[in-house]
Nucleic acid binder design. Structure first.
Lengths: 349, 349
DNA sequence: CGTTATATGGAGAACGTTCTACATTTCATC
DNA sequence: GATGAAATGTAGAACGTTCTCCATATAACG
């Protein structure tokens, strides 16, 4: 509007720590001290500086911060964004972070080890302050190597012997036991587990843990150590085909424990389509108690491991590690059963 | 192991551009040039440098890069991580980014304007190269202000008059028309829309656009301009209560068009629970064609706007803008109907 | 009043890149 | 050979912070 409109400051208008210092009539170092509320700042100085910050709308550059010190960002790595269990974890992370000055940035690896690695490296290169890895695929040694460079908490990754990083898990073995016990308590006898058919069978993975729990519960109840475990491939076309085959088997079990709601729900859908009645012909119990399982239409009994809580606990652990803790922590939550129609018919029809 | 174990380089072992330069026997600037494959690099030089990079396992620091030039990161802002439509968008973004040297970092705003603002600011402060905002809540003027500082593409945000940023949308008005037309074609006459009950009624929001399309289609078919639109609150307790009330109305319409699968699916669940048969008593059509809608158990007819494609198109637009385009683009995709059991019974029972 | 502690503020060197200028070499072309 | 033009490589100044020393001012104490 004014005649004095300048051309120059069009892009060069970034308010830096220097602008603030000049405006407040103090040194750059002083402003920095106030920002980090470091030692050696008088009330008068603080007031001057905060006023200037307010007046100019100053925001420190995260990039520059990261170059020298902390970036106040924590990275979250998700294996997969479609699994409805993961948003719960994110919600937990964000809940804990919200009141703090930390912020979360999320990366999605799509279960690709390659991408997972490069994402972790990127987060390190951004000088993020810490990482929450949700169900990472990388082997423990590699994670340990990364953990030297940045504080790490792994969620959904069983390695209680790791010393370089922390782990936060629901007790997946126990969860599987609870599932089996629930099926037995309902009187079902022929019980099978449907697990994930993956080449990698790390004991670190939650899937493997659930298999162990399933086997143990079956054995304890006298059904032999080699209780049957079916493998469902991950990729979509094969996946449904395998399930259909399972459903049409003539020696189909009376009840099935699925390693994840994701599979359980698809199974339920196919069962309906193929005329297999649930739970009359086949009882189903899933894992994660995802929001979809809770839908009236789906009505899937499931093991609840409170993703939200896992996210919260993991974040708190990470922050304590960022703030200096060095001894590793391995936290185990107890999962619980949420009974629904797929386990035992609600109506006495 | 060796006796010469040094204490010093324990943390100081970062391989920087300087390490590479020394190792290759060239200048720092030369290495930088190779990295950015800038003009003025001979084959011999390039070979020396890439060898050194390989040998040392050098990765440029994103933090330092961001401070001076590009960071090769694009920020994605999600309004909500629970809506199963959004993972599709992410998949599209990642698909386009994967072969490039760009990487995506995701922030989740949980529909909070405050958080959305601070996340955008953070991404700017990280010197990210561009932003994909998915269904942002901020008004257009504010977005325009941000767009001066960083290239922005908004997805699910209708503002074809914006000059500072691009928009990528499915044609939500058309989508709603298609839905209404489909219901009419099935012979249903009493049709209502269930929309989102929010204070904010920006025309930019997809919800409002769908309402407009619904009204227009109804009017065109002779059902008056004031076709009824019910409002469903977002928060969970009130939400279901409102739906129950709707379902038990004695003047309940014959068919309903829901603004989102999210609501449609809950409605389907409640309908089953309350004994309202779908589609015999009530036909339902949703929006988004989310993965949940496709489940056999749910079997919800829905308007497909291919989130994946939106993500791809948006990312390509963003990259072209990063690379210099200044004129704004406003892209509109045509949605399509996916007919399923909630629209017309598949079996002739 | 000296002398010593303590509290307060500032100078300036990192941090690891990018990128503008410039210096040098190589190559045509006359 | 001389003369530009083009190609190739380098020095070094940013970028916006943090943080270690230092310098000074003030308080405490005998």
């Amino acid at each position: 509007m004014s005649v004095e409109d300048k051309q120059k400051p069009q892009r060069n208008d970034r308010v830096t720590i220097r602008t603030v210092a000049t405006h407040a009539g103090v040194s750059v170092a002083a402003v920095s001290k106030v920002m980090r509320n470091a030692y050696g700042v008088s009330e008068a100085l603080r007031a001057k500086v905060t006023d200037a910050i307010e007046a100019l709308g100053y925001r420190p550059s995260r990039a520059a911060r990261g170059l020298r010190g902390r970036s106040f960002t924590i990275g979250v790595l998700l294996i997969d964004i479609r699994n409805p269990f993961l948003p719960d974890v994110i919600a937990g992370v964000n809940g804990v972070l919200a009141p703090s000055h930390y912020q979360a940035m999320i990366g999605v690896s799509n279960a690709r080890v390659q991408l997972e690695t490069s994402l972790i490296e990127s987060m390190i290169d951004y000088k993020m302050d810490g990482l929450v890895l949700v169900a990472p695929r990388l082997p423990s040694e590699i994670l340990a190597k990364f953990a030297v460079q940045i504080p790490i908490v792994a969620v959904g990754y069983h390695d209680a012997s790791a010393t370089a990083f922390d782990t936060v898990n629901a007790d997946d073995q126990r969860g599987a036991e609870i599932a089996v016990e629930a099926l037995l308590a309902c009187g079902y006898r022929g019980i099978e587990m449907l697990s994930l058919g993956e080449r990698e069978g790390h004991a670190v993975s939650v899937v493997r843990q659930r298999e162990i729990g399933y086997r143990r519960a079956m054995q304890r109840c006298g059904f032999g150590a080699s209780a049957p475990i079916g493998k469902i491939p991950m990729a979509s076309p094969k996946r449904e085909e395998t399930m259909r085959k399972f459903l049409s088997r003539q020696d189909r079990p009376r009840a099935v424990f699925c390693w994840s709601d994701l599979d359980a729900i698809t199974l339920l859908s196919l069962a309906m389509e193929m005329g297999v009645r649930v739970p009359d012909d086949l009882a189903v119990i899933g894992y994660d108690n995802s929001s979809t399982a809770a839908l009236g239409l789906v009505n899937l009994a499931s093991i609840d491991q409170s993703g939200r809580e896992l996210g919260q606990v993991a974040t708190r652990a990470l922050i304590s590690r960022i703030e200096g803790r060095t001894a590793s922590e391995h936290i185990l939550q107890i999962p619980s059963l949420v009974s629904r129609g797929s386990l035992i018919g609600s109506d006495t029809k």
